[in-house]
Design a protein around this nucleic acid. Sequence first.
DNA 1: AAGATATATATCGAAGTGATATATTCCATT
DNA 2: AATGGAATATATCACTTCGATATATATCTT
Lengths: 177, 177
Amino acid sequence: MDVKTLCLGVLSRRDCSGYEIRKQFEEGPFAHFQDAGFGSIYPALKKLTESGLVNCRAEEQDSRPDKKVYAITQKGRQALFDAVNQQPAADKLRSDFMFMLFFADLLAPAAIDRMIAQRSAHHAKLLNRLEGCDRVLPAGERFVLNYGIAIHRAALAYFEDHGHELVGALLQKDVAE
Amino acid sequence: MDVKTLCLGVLSRRDCSGYEIRKQFEEGPFAHFQDAGFGSIYPALKKLTESGLVNCRAEEQDSRPDKKVYAITQKGRQALFDAVNQQPAADKLRSDFMFMLFFADLLAPAAIDRMIAQRSAHHAKLLNRLEGCDRVLPAGERFVLNYGIAIHRAALAYFEDHGHELVGALLQKDVAE
DNA sequence: AAGATATATATCGAAGTGATATATTCCATT
DNA sequence: AATGGAATATATCACTTCGATATATATCTT
């Protein structure tokens, strides 16, 4: 699932500029399970235009660069259909946070305490955002949104229930030394 | 957190060959929150050797290529310490599975049913692997392991509780058409 | 006997990341 | 009134990473 396909997915819902596509990965409906930056979106849109999967029209704006609005074509919809009907690749998760906590022995207990508090706040914020969406959604979108809510709730609960245990264990270890 | 740092982390626990490092990301203690392939591990080990953060010794083997075993140096341990004491970057998740379900309208209900069943089985398998580790672990490793268990349980529960709802909603839609 | 899986290292083109550059408007603070 | 920061908007580029492939042998399974 490359960035070209991700862009097709976004554009299948409504016409967008590159900037607007980026925003949807940053804080929109795709934010909790995909990501793409400008450095991959703009080249992807270029290639999609060249191969006729999207069209581009320039929209004038008052004293701003023209907004290039991209629209998916029928051929693009077919390509999206084909892509979502493949076997999905395994999820890829990269968590520096977990990597650091794995080596908690190298960290000061106070630092861990702070990290976990920050992380809990982060989960709470995202949870709030996801739960705030009470519009009626297509079944697939709703399913994916609710999955995000379930996972963030579980993560938050884990930190609340077990965060202090980790800090406690390390404080005890420090005393023993 | 680049692959060089990930390798330092793995090597801080025990000496490894590139192949063994890869295995630890594939199915070892790092598998549920990080990943790295040969294409990034071998160049990383080369650079780490050049900058003196790891040493390399060749171990002879019967009728197999020499195993190059890497060991972390004191300088390498310092670099790992510095890295884990930074502010962690945000988690990066890329889930093709969720992207596909987001566009469930483009999928046949039977296909979705199959996908969810496969995904549940996958979570159950990973859960089994994580829960199978009943050795006494350092506090940080235990914390990260239990986090993985909590998240996989939540995901599995979500699919069991709500998977049929999605399929049901799409079947109803098909009837209405 | 054949074929798949595991051990082991290595390369390379393609793709993606993260930082930076450019330019303007709007809003808030000093 | 002035300054600075955030938002809107596109684009490039060096570096890193990914995924596939190549090579070679041993072991296990059918």
